[in-house]
């Protein structure tokens, strides 16, 4: 029976290593990207998979914690993208312009402008 736990142990260590590598790449992405939105892109994806894989790895090394850690992983999978969406939305609405190359499109700016126009129309009535 012991060899199963050995396999789980080494698989867990491998997942922790993989998670740390992704977390490092995410940090590097936050450093290298030109603006907030691209930084969020790099940060969200890398930190989600990095944290999930690290926590699952700990769950494999200590199988008695696995259920708890699995619930935490689910929670991260739901909450991480939500928080990055909240950050992106709030920044765009408070006027942080996305970095665009020549001919780049910002469709959300039109929506925000249209919404503002509707609101001023309402307040003048």
């Amino acid at each position: 029976m012991n060899w199963i736990f050995d396999i789980l142990y080494y698989a867990g260590l491998f997942l922790i290593l993989l998670g740390s590598v992704f977390l490092f790449l995410g940090a590097l992405g936050i450093y290298r990207m030109p603006d907030l939105y691209n930084r969020l892109q790099a940060g969200t994806k890398a930190s989600t998979l990095g944290a999930m894989s690290t926590i699952l790895g700990v769950g494999l090394v200590h199988p008695q914690w696995f259920v708890k850690l699995f619930i935490i992983v689910l929670f991260i999978a739901f909450s991480n993208p939500l928080s990055s969406h909240a950050l992106a939305r709030a920044s765009h609405r408070s006027g942080v312009k996305p970095f665009l190359k020549e001919g780049g499109e910002d469709a959300y700016a039109e929506e925000v402008a249209a919404e503002k126009a509707r609101e001023t129309e309402k307040s003048t009535l």
Binding site: L40, A77, P81, H85
Partner: peptide, 12 residues
């Protein structure tokens, strides 16, 4: 899901 897939992030 879109936020976590390659190169895309849901703004709103």
């Amino acid at each position: 899901s879109i936020t976590l897939t390659p190169g895309t992030l849901t703004v709103d």
